[in-house]
Simulated assay, not measured.
Amino acid sequence: MVAQGFTVDLNKPLVFQVGHLGEDYEEWVHQPIVCKESPRFFENDLLEFLTLNTWWVIPLVWLPVVCWFVKSSVNMGISSNQLAATIAAGIFIWTLLEYTLHRFLFHIKTKTYWGNTIHYLLHGCHHKHPMDGYRLVFPPAATAILLVPFWNLIKLLTPTLYAPALLGGGLLGYVMYDCTHYYLHHGKPLQGVSSKMKRYHMNHHFRIQDKGFGITSTFWDRVFGTLPPKSGKKLR
């Protein structure tokens, strides 16, 4: 595709090309290429390897961490009812964070070289290649880095007894989100809630990219008025 006199060569590593699209990046990145092949991101093999991740790594890495945080609160004497409520609160807070990040960060509009490049790495690549199964879930190393400031904030704002369970609940919500997101792209639900959610999310990718930011539910889209309109061409 040609944009502002620049041609993106899909046969070459993409990351350091997309910044040159300038103001045309927004249009380019929302014209999806539907194939299961993973595009090359970097010339360097190590950098390229670090961008690849399979979905099952997420529960494998993070569910034991969730259990450790929950057990920490149990060891401090939290009751069963308090524990259940705190974990549920953590999951609920995650759903709001999921929506907020997707709407305001992942869909931020950029036009500078580095703005386009960073956005492509963060989320643009997913919209350009929505069926790339190796870049759909978040790399654990990046999640671990982001977890540190969240943990410090929770410890600052939450009583010691509840803080580990609250983070454990939020982290469990994240695991549910990433696994759900992968399933919505690569699973084949025939009916029921999962089928409706898949149709809802595919609508976000292929019809109205500035609506439908919820992944695990439509709750916050309803609250903040970002539900996609029901009219228009239905997606299969």
Rank of each mutant, 00 (worst) to 15 (best):
V34C: 05
I87R: 04
S79R: 08
D132F: 11
G168H: 02
H185K: 12
L14Q: 03
T117W: 03
Y120N: 13
H20T: 04
D132P: 04
D132T: 04
W56M: 12
E27W: 01
P164C: 04
L101H: 03
H201D: 04
G169W: 00
H126K: 07
N75F: 02
T100H: 13
Y162P: 01
R207H: 07
H205E: 15
T158E: 08
G173I: 00
G168A: 04
K196D: 09
G187M: 12
G173N: 01
L235Q: 13
F150N: 00
L50N: 06
K155S: 04
A85S: 08
V2D: 15
Y134Q: 09
H181G: 05
F42N: 05
I108Y: 09
C179N: 02
G170D: 04
K36N: 12
V193P: 01
P189L: 10
L122E: 02
T54F: 09
E43Y: 08
F6M: 06
R40N: 06
P130T: 08
P64R: 04
T95P: 02
K233R: 07
L10Y: 13
G90M: 11
E48L: 02
F69S: 01
G22T: 07
G90H: 08
K36S: 08
S73G: 15
A141V: 06
W28H: 06
H30I: 09
Q4L: 07
N152T: 02
F69Q: 07
L136T: 10
L235H: 09
R40E: 12
V65I: 15
L167P: 10
L97S: 10
Y120E: 11
H186C: 10
R236M: 05
G173T: 01
G192P: 01
S73W: 15
A144K: 03
L136Y: 00
S194Q: 09
I33S: 07
L190C: 07
L167V: 14
P32N: 11
A88Y: 00
W151K: 03
T226R: 10
A84E: 06
L10I: 02
Y200Q: 09
Y113D: 13
K188G: 05
I154K: 08
L46N: 02
F92C: 14
Y162F: 15
H102D: 13
K196Y: 12
S38N: 07
L83I: 11
C67M: 14
T216E: 06
T216F: 02
A88E: 01
H30K: 08
L161K: 02
H181S: 05
P64D: 05
